[in-house]
Simulated assay, not measured.
Amino acid sequence: MRIIAGKNKGKRLKSLDRRDVRPTSDRTKEALFNILGPDVVGTRCLDLYAGFGGLGIEAISRGANEVTFIEQNKQIAKTIDQNIASVSYQDQSKVIVDDVLKALRRLRGHFELIFMDPPYKEIELYTKTLDRISQYNLLHPTGIIIVEHQAKADLDWPADYVVIKERNYGKSTLTLLRGASDNG
């Protein structure tokens, strides 16, 4: 796992050999950030089911102002902290160790980019998480939610969101969502 571009391009990030964590591949991460382009600069981001923090750290490297990471597993969250320290992003990062659905209710303000990568097999988490984001009004009116999911997953997106882009990368699919009330 490495940072693809930006101020820390090429920097390797620490990960653990665990079956319960599936880091976003470099190919998928590069494609995602090519889609987002300069829209990352100056944003406030949320990295849900953060794993080792690769997406959020990539966002900071590419110019995001801040990222809040939420990861339930303490050992994995410690690895996020180590990765953040290795690139000196502590002032731009906050790591919350908690269940995502519980942690969302404590957040305040809007996020322009929300990365969401729940465990593939826990299909119900996709809808539950999106519903909570809407319930707590966490998505900026022009913000984007990036959902990574299994390519063959049959997901129904809540009515609060519209799909603006969907791309397949091997066994993974990236679906980009906006709030349904956004006209942008």
Results as ranks from 00 to 15, higher is better:
residue 17 D to W: 03
residue 17 D to I: 07
residue 19 R to I: 13
residue 19 R to P: 07
residue 20 D to K: 14
residue 20 D to L: 11
residue 20 D to G: 05
residue 21 V to A: 04
residue 21 V to R: 07
residue 21 V to E: 12
residue 21 V to S: 06
residue 22 R to F: 02
residue 22 R to G: 04
residue 22 R to K: 14
residue 22 R to S: 00
residue 23 P to D: 04
residue 24 T to S: 13
residue 25 S to D: 04
residue 26 D to I: 14
residue 26 D to L: 06
residue 27 R to M: 00
residue 28 T to C: 13
residue 31 A to R: 10
residue 31 A to N: 10
residue 32 L to M: 14
residue 32 L to G: 09
residue 34 N to S: 12
residue 35 I to E: 09
residue 35 I to L: 14
residue 36 L to Q: 15
residue 36 L to T: 03
residue 37 G to A: 15
residue 41 V to S: 15
residue 41 V to G: 10
residue 42 G to P: 11
residue 42 G to H: 10
residue 42 G to S: 11
residue 43 T to Y: 00
residue 45 C to P: 13
residue 46 L to C: 11
residue 47 D to W: 02
residue 47 D to C: 00
residue 47 D to H: 08
residue 47 D to F: 04
residue 48 L to Y: 13
residue 49 Y to S: 05
residue 49 Y to V: 12
residue 49 Y to F: 14
residue 51 G to T: 09
residue 51 G to N: 14
residue 53 G to C: 02
residue 55 L to H: 09
residue 55 L to M: 15
residue 55 L to W: 03
residue 57 I to P: 03
residue 58 E to V: 05
residue 58 E to A: 02
residue 59 A to F: 02
residue 65 N to P: 01
residue 66 E to S: 08
residue 66 E to L: 05
residue 67 V to C: 12
residue 71 E to R: 01
residue 72 Q to H: 09
residue 73 N to V: 01
residue 75 Q to P: 06
residue 75 Q to F: 02
residue 76 I to G: 00
residue 76 I to S: 08
residue 77 A to E: 13
residue 78 K to D: 05
residue 79 T to H: 10
residue 80 I to H: 00
residue 85 A to F: 08
residue 85 A to P: 04
residue 85 A to C: 08
residue 86 S to F: 00
residue 86 S to W: 09
residue 88 S to L: 01
residue 88 S to E: 10
residue 93 S to R: 07
residue 93 S to W: 15
residue 95 V to Q: 04
residue 96 I to D: 11
residue 97 V to G: 00
residue 97 V to T: 15
residue 98 D to H: 14
residue 98 D to T: 08
residue 100 V to L: 00
residue 100 V to P: 00
residue 100 V to E: 12
residue 100 V to R: 10
residue 101 L to A: 03
residue 101 L to R: 14
residue 102 K to M: 15
residue 102 K to C: 07
residue 104 L to Q: 01
residue 106 R to I: 00
residue 107 L to S: 03
residue 107 L to G: 09
residue 107 L to T: 11
residue 107 L to W: 09
residue 108 R to D: 09
residue 108 R to W: 02
residue 110 H to K: 14
residue 111 F to C: 03
residue 112 E to S: 07
residue 113 L to D: 10
residue 114 I to Y: 02
residue 114 I to N: 07
residue 117 D to H: 01
residue 118 P to D: 13
residue 119 P to C: 08
residue 119 P to A: 11
residue 120 Y to A: 08
residue 121 K to R: 08
residue 121 K to S: 14
residue 121 K to L: 03
residue 121 K to F: 12
residue 125 L to D: 12
residue 126 Y to L: 06
residue 127 T to S: 05
residue 132 R to M: 01
residue 133 I to T: 05
residue 133 I to C: 13
residue 133 I to G: 02
residue 134 S to K: 14
residue 134 S to P: 04
residue 135 Q to G: 07
residue 135 Q to W: 07
residue 137 N to F: 12
residue 138 L to K: 06
residue 140 H to R: 03
residue 140 H to T: 11
residue 142 T to G: 15
residue 143 G to R: 02
residue 143 G to V: 06
residue 144 I to A: 05
residue 147 V to L: 09
residue 147 V to A: 14
residue 148 E to S: 00
residue 149 H to N: 06
residue 150 Q to K: 12
residue 152 K to W: 01
residue 152 K to V: 02
residue 153 A to M: 06
residue 153 A to S: 13
residue 153 A to F: 00
residue 154 D to Q: 04
residue 155 L to G: 02
